[in-house]
């Protein structure tokens, strides 16, 4: 079923809210992974506020859908979503990366309610997601597992081990989303270390592949719906995105992969994202 106009507007507002919270969390004069968090914000909004079956009051509910950020450095967007859903109080966002905080620089399942695994050492999240999908099949549960990958990250060899395994074990309860923002820490993926072509590689590993605009919530939703209907194959959604989307000075640049905002930039970013 297509999203209604009202739903689309609501999800767009949620995505804007997530970006606002990301900028607020990073604040002035501190390093933060703004670029890769903002590029995936629309996908995260559709997943957390529409698509996924989950319950903030029962983070360990066995039948919940799971979402892992294999590109763990985008934790900011997941923290924003979890707080917005009510997994923990919004006040925690201000403690990001402080000593003793429940919000670490990378996702930590022991510290943060709603975080499913420890990810951030790149290349491992997809394998963990495979294990969760395999457990779901063993237990005959119908939960789905979502895993967000970076297009720089997939240079890691373990990703391709996991990709082959997911194809071999026909993990159709697994959907990976490739945040194809085209930029890794030190520059454009195509120039630094080209992981393309993406579609062909994942098809060869036995996946169903869908390409979508990663900033249009209606299209993201359609892609997720399609993935759900595919049997005997995992699905990769290649989400074409812009790094730093929504924060003008951070868009399409490696400078804000893990950048620092000055006061003027901070105010400009919040101004763009309020409404």
């Amino acid at each position: 079923m297509l999203l209604t106009k009202a739903q689309i507007t609501e999800l767009e507002q949620k995505a804007r809210k997530l970006r606002y919270l990301i900028v607020e969390m990073v604040s002035v004069g501190k390093q933060g992974h703004i670029g890769g968090s903002c590029s995936i914000a629309d996908v995260m909004a559709v997943l957390y506020f529409h698509k996924m079956k989950h319950d903030p009051l029962r983070p360990n509910w066995p039948d919940r859908d799971r979402l892992l950020l294999s590109k763990g450095h985008a934790a900011l967007v997941q923290y924003a979503a979890l707080a917005e859903c009510g997994y923990f109080s919004r006040e925690h966002l201000a403690t990001l990366k402080q000593t003793g905080s429940i919000l670490q620089g990378h996702p930590d399942m022991l510290k943060t309610p709603g975080i499913e695994a420890n990810t951030g050492s790149l290349g491992q999240g997809l394998s963990i997601a495979c294990g969760m999908a395999m457990a779901g099949k063993l237990d005959r549960k119908d939960y789905r597992v979502f895993c967000v990958l970076g297009d720089g990250e997939i240079a890691e060899g373990q990703i391709w081990e996991a990709s082959m395994a997911a194809g071999f074990y026909k993990l159709d309860n697994l959907t990976a989303i490739l945040d194809k923002n085209g930029i890794q820490a030190t520059g454009p993926v195509a120039e630094r270390f080209d992981t393309n072509p993406h579609r062909e590689k994942w098809l060869a590993c036995g996946w169903h592949v869908i390409e979508t605009d990663g900033h249009r919530v209606g299209e993201i939703d359609l892609a997720l719906n399609e993935a759900e209907k595919i049997h005997n194959r995992p699905t990769l959604i290649i989400a074409h995105t812009v790094k730093g989307k929504g924060v003008p000075f951070a868009e399409d640049t490696a400078a804000f992969h893990n950048g620092i905002m000055d006061q003027a930039q901070y105010e400009q970013a919040l101004e763009c994202l309020k409404r």
Partner: peptide, 26 residues
């Protein structure tokens, strides 16, 4: 046989996959 997984000659994926299985109660 249904609880045995041949993961191929790919130890890294095997270990992280095991983590996912364990987090899910196995």
């Amino acid at each position: 046989p249904e609880r045995f997984f041949e993961m191929g000659i790919a130890e890294q994926n095997m270990v992280s996959t095991a983590a996912g299985l364990a987090i899910s109660g196995k």
